[in-house]
Simulated assay, not measured.
Amino acid sequence: MLSTKGASTPLHSTLLRSRRRVEAVIAGGGPSIVFQPIVRGHDGAVEGYEALSRFPPGGGDTEEWFADAAHCGLGPALDRSAVVNALKESARLPQGRFVAVNLSAATLLDDSTFVDLLIDFGARRPLVIEITEHAALDDEDAVVDVLAELRRGGVSIAVDDVGSAYAGARQLVVLEPEMIKLDAFVVHDMKGNRAKSALAELVLEFARRTDARCVFEGIETDEDLETARMIGADLLQGYRTGRPEPAAGSGEIGCSQPR
């Protein structure tokens, strides 16, 4: 708990404001959730959806909200609130599609009952946990153990933002994910960029050699789509193939078939 005693400092005031904002969102039943389709590379059919959090305006983007929550000690609480909302809202999505949710390793280690909730949901609909750390894991052994428990319960693991995260390569080796998400920075404008294309091909080859599937994120243009399909991407995600939308309860949401 953040103490409010003692002399106020700029850092203390900032943390206090962040804490109050995050607490207000959680108390109000937030964050709200939208779902972005993840489609097959070869035919554009929807295989699943990533649940994405949305926050009140004026507090920065989604990444800033979660960073603020972590800094003021509410990271796991905001993670849990977002995921519980996502799992509830996913009941309105078409059956048979997987749901991917973002979680920090710290949240998984924080509450064993939350892990049980994830396993229970995974028994009813395919569930993918995207590990969001952009730095070295504090306790790799404990993280590996809890991921093994989730896998025994039928939940799949993804490593997010590969190609940009500080510890991405190490996490690929340590976590052995079933899904690898290639960062949008690498995917966007790959055409004509030898470095980006080469990195995408290397990550895709690594995925295939480790029996994982590779999602190319950040597909925003026809050229991005064409290049990703030419390289052989397993799965695609981005505005060109489907925009984030609230769960509609019927039909596919936001799906735009590749030409």
Rank of each mutant, 00 (worst) to 15 (best):
G96D: 07
V99D: 05
V99W: 04
V101T: 04
S104T: 13
A105T: 07
L109M: 14
L109I: 13
L109V: 09
T113I: 04
F114Y: 15
F121L: 08
G122V: 08
P126V: 06
V128L: 15
I129S: 08
E140V: 15
A142L: 08
D145S: 14
E149C: 15
E149W: 08
R152W: 03
G153E: 07
V155C: 06
I157C: 00
D161T: 02
V162C: 06
V162R: 06
G163T: 11
A165H: 06
A165T: 08
A165M: 03
A167R: 10
Q171A: 06
L172H: 11
L175C: 10
L175Y: 12
L175E: 02
K181E: 00
A184L: 11
F185T: 13
F185C: 02
F185Q: 12
V186H: 03
H188Y: 02
D189I: 03
G192L: 09
N193D: 15
K196Q: 14
S197F: 09
S197D: 13
A200Q: 09
A200V: 06
E201Q: 15
L204T: 07
F206C: 01
R208A: 02
A212R: 12
E217L: 06
G218P: 00
E223N: 06
L225N: 06
L225K: 05
L225S: 01
T227M: 14
A228C: 10
R229G: 04
M230D: 14
M230G: 00
D234I: 09
L235S: 13
L236N: 00
L236A: 11
Q237P: 11
Q237F: 10
